[in-house]
Design a protein around this nucleic acid. Structure first.
Lengths: 191, 191
DNA sequence: TACTTCCAATTGAATGTTCATTCGGTCTGC
DNA sequence: GCAGACCGAATGAACATTCAATTGGAAGTA
């Protein structure tokens, strides 16, 4: 809505970076304060508690991912082309923002993440579902729920990023393209 | 090697259960002690520190997963049948042991997980790689590294379990079978 | 312009709590 | 009577959170 206060953004970014490096528990508020260049008390001017800070940061970060999806989800090109664009769009985003991916994964599996919304209420998964609805309409896909497809695609991307970002292996562009290709081919109705 | 002491096993199981419910940081040693029916000091008889306890618990739990893989990895049936057995074997294990999955995911994304071994040194991923080597040998699969296939399969299973265990949606057996089927079909060489 | 008022933004030292860890001592089987 | 297993109160450090005090600038007043 309104632009985020500079201090608030600095607190977000510092928390993101520090949580990536040290985890939630290795990141005391005092450390966030120092890194963000504010006093400890200032954080509490913007956020009620550490839990609230983490929770709001999650929303902040989720919006970035949602922006990527919206950007790539284009009706004027073929569904297939759009699928690959979306796959690579998300891949690149996570690849270039490893702290986002790390925070995301830590958050999802943490007790901060209480009352996780169902996929219908979660804007990110809803967008992915909607995306696949078009595929169901236009292509010969296997009869699988769109929310299943959305989740599988997302986890497919994330595990690929983890693999590459960890440095375990280096993938040429050609090899990398095989990964969404597996998913694409697998979705097609075969009988 | 040698059978684990009863107290030690109790500490493992209590930690597993409590970490699932409260996360690493919501699980003080005093709570583990009480739940396991031992004194706080006893834990330090078996483990040097909380970090060490968590680390050893990871190994303990990983061995359970490895046992599942070894059990299902059978050379006397077709690779395809074996693939589906393995998929459902791991699926069922995580489904029946949600605390293992939760602990796993929390651990992997936490700072406890320093010096994560490369897939070649990680027995779990090595087993999956070896499994797919047979597939490469016997089947017409796309030219993708076995470690990539292993990772993708594992994440495919895990995200399916999460989806089902969260209660977001209920899958009939027929629908559930479509998920490994996607992966199987996708791996096949298509040209 | 000069002066006052007011309040949100900001500070950081102080507080109180929550743990991980220690250690002197007890128990048990040999 | 020894040695390892076990106990649990005590210790001390780390941390989230509070709050009394300070700042700075926007609006009001004359």
């Amino acid at each position: 809505m309104e632009p985020i206060a500079e201090k608030k953004r600095a607190i977000f970014e510092s928390t993101l970076k520090l949580v990536r490096e040290n985890g939630f528990h290795g990141t005391p508020m005092s450390m966030v304060a120092k890194h963000a260049g504010v006093a400890a008390g200032t954080i509490y001017h913007y956020f009620g508690s550490k839990d609230q800070l983490i929770g709001e940061l999650f929303t902040y970060v989720q919006q970035q991912v949602i922006a990527v999806i919206k950007k790539e989800n284009c009706e004027t090109i073929s569904f297939k082309a759009c699928f690959f664009n979306l796959w690579f769009g998300l891949y690149s985003f996570y690849r270039e923002n490893p702290e986002v991916l790390k925070f995301f994964e830590q958050f999802v599996n943490s007790p901060y993440n209480t009352a996780r919304p169902s996929p219908e209420q979660d804007e990110l998964h809803e967008l992915l579902s909607t995306f696949f609805e078009r595929g169901i309409r236009e292509e010969q896909l296997k009869p699988i729920g769109t929310n299943v497809l959305g989740t599988l695609m997302h986890s497919n991307i994330i595990s690929t990023v983890r693999l590459v970002s960890s440095g375990w292996l280096v993938l040429e562009r050609k090899e990398l393209e095989l990964i969404p290709q597996i998913f694409w081919d697998g979705m097609q109705r075969t009988n």
